[in-house]
Computed example of a mutant assay.
Amino acid sequence: MADNKHMDEEMMDYEPIIVTFTDEAGNERHFAEEMRIPMNGEEYALLVGLNTEGDEDFDEEENVTIAKITKDEDGEDVYIVDFPEEEFDRVVEEYNRICDEMEAE
């Protein structure tokens, strides 16, 4: 029972990581980091789009992407969405494997 209380406290302290991308036209899109996916010494993030405009037609499932996480010169996380398709496909496979493991538990 104490474990559940500890987990509840951790979740209350959790602040989601919000990532903002700006396209060529200057439009901002905001995403919440849902989970990190470690793979082959690299780290990736599953990002879920946020409906910041109150768009009634917004579909969360259509606004999901994967970003590669690197570090800048200050050690801050940098999210990169342009990386090779083969690498993206391998990350999706790893994500699916992780989800399958979690379901099996």
Score class of each variant (00 low, 15 high):
5 K>S: 09
13 D>Q: 11
50 L>E: 10
32 A>F: 01
81 V>A: 04
27 N>Y: 05
53 E>L: 15
72 D>R: 05
96 N>H: 08
60 E>I: 15
37 I>T: 07
100 D>H: 04
50 L>F: 01
65 T>W: 00
53 E>K: 14
95 Y>I: 11
15 E>H: 01
14 Y>F: 11
10 E>N: 09
15 E>F: 02
25 A>L: 09
16 P>C: 11
58 F>A: 09
12 M>A: 12
22 T>M: 14
26 G>F: 02
105 E>L: 14
105 E>I: 14
80 I>D: 10
29 R>G: 10
72 D>H: 06
18 I>D: 07
8 D>K: 07
8 D>N: 09
18 I>N: 04
54 G>L: 10
81 V>T: 13
93 E>G: 07
8 D>L: 13
63 N>A: 05
98 I>G: 01
89 D>L: 14
55 D>R: 06
57 D>T: 14
1 M>N: 06
91 V>S: 04
30 H>V: 07
85 E>V: 12
18 I>M: 07
48 V>I: 12
48 V>C: 02
12 M>V: 08
45 A>R: 01
29 R>T: 13
83 F>T: 06
15 E>A: 13
24 E>G: 09
72 D>I: 11
55 D>L: 11
90 R>S: 12
100 D>F: 03
49 G>S: 04
44 Y>H: 01
79 Y>M: 14
5 K>C: 09
28 E>K: 08
66 I>W: 00
89 D>W: 03
41 G>R: 07
96 N>Q: 15
99 C>S: 08
83 F>M: 04
58 F>M: 07
27 N>G: 08
57 D>Y: 05
88 F>R: 02
62 E>H: 03
16 P>I: 10
47 L>Q: 03
34 E>Y: 07
100 D>T: 09
87 E>W: 00
47 L>Y: 01
47 L>I: 09
26 G>I: 03
18 I>W: 01
42 E>H: 04
48 V>W: 00
87 E>H: 01
63 N>K: 00
9 E>F: 06
89 D>C: 09
38 P>D: 13
103 E>D: 12
45 A>K: 00
74 D>I: 10
57 D>A: 11
65 T>L: 07
22 T>H: 08
73 E>C: 09
2 A>T: 15
9 E>R: 10
45 A>I: 11
24 E>Q: 10
28 E>L: 13
86 E>S: 08
87 E>G: 02
28 E>N: 13
22 T>I: 14
82 D>V: 13
38 P>M: 12
74 D>F: 06
4 N>K: 06
32 A>C: 06
7 M>S: 11
8 D>P: 00
91 V>L: 06
2 A>S: 09
93 E>F: 03
70 T>F: 02
52 T>Y: 05
46 L>E: 12
93 E>I: 13
75 G>A: 08
93 E>P: 00
